[in-house]
Simulated scan of single mutants.
Amino acid sequence: MSSDHEIYQIAAQLAAEDKTPTVALIKARLTQSLPLARVIKGLQAWQNNPKIAETSKPEVKRQKTDNKRSLTEAEVVGLIKQAIAPLQVEIEELKAKLTKLS
């Protein structure tokens, strides 16, 4: 599981427990230590799209090998959003670095 996906999963678990996902609660449940900025960006990505945690990497692999079923439009959109979420986080990190350099 990627670290970003783990952040999304933890945020979703917290929400399912009727707790507001926060950076501190997420950091407390991580299986590995991550930079604070990465946790913040991951939480922001999850807040923008809470369904991002629903599609896991093993599920994507299973769907690719299952030729008997086509993906629905909603599933394709979900997969695309999941794929671009880490890129959006990286873009925000790069923007922050550029701002500091300016």
Rank of each mutant, 00 (worst) to 15 (best):
D4A: 11
H5N: 14
E6I: 03
Q9P: 02
I10Y: 04
A11L: 00
A12G: 05
A12C: 12
Q13E: 13
Q13A: 12
L14E: 03
K19V: 15
K19E: 15
K19W: 11
T20S: 01
P21W: 02
T22G: 02
T22N: 08
A24E: 15
K27C: 13
R29K: 11
T31S: 11
S33A: 13
A37D: 10
A37Y: 06
R38P: 08
V39N: 10
V39I: 15
I40Q: 14
I40F: 04
K41Q: 15
Q44P: 08
A45R: 03
P50N: 04
P50W: 04
A53N: 06
E54S: 07
E54Y: 00
E54L: 01
K57H: 06
E59P: 02
K61H: 14
K61M: 14
K61S: 13
R62G: 06
Q63T: 03
K64F: 14
K64W: 14
D66P: 07
N67E: 11
K68P: 08
K68N: 13
K68T: 15
R69M: 06
S70K: 14
L71H: 00
L71D: 06
T72F: 07
T72M: 01
E75H: 00
I80D: 06
Q82C: 08
A83H: 09
I84Y: 09
A85C: 09
L87S: 08
V89T: 11
L98P: 00
L98D: 10
K100T: 13
K100Y: 12
K100G: 08
K100N: 10
K100M: 15
S102A: 10
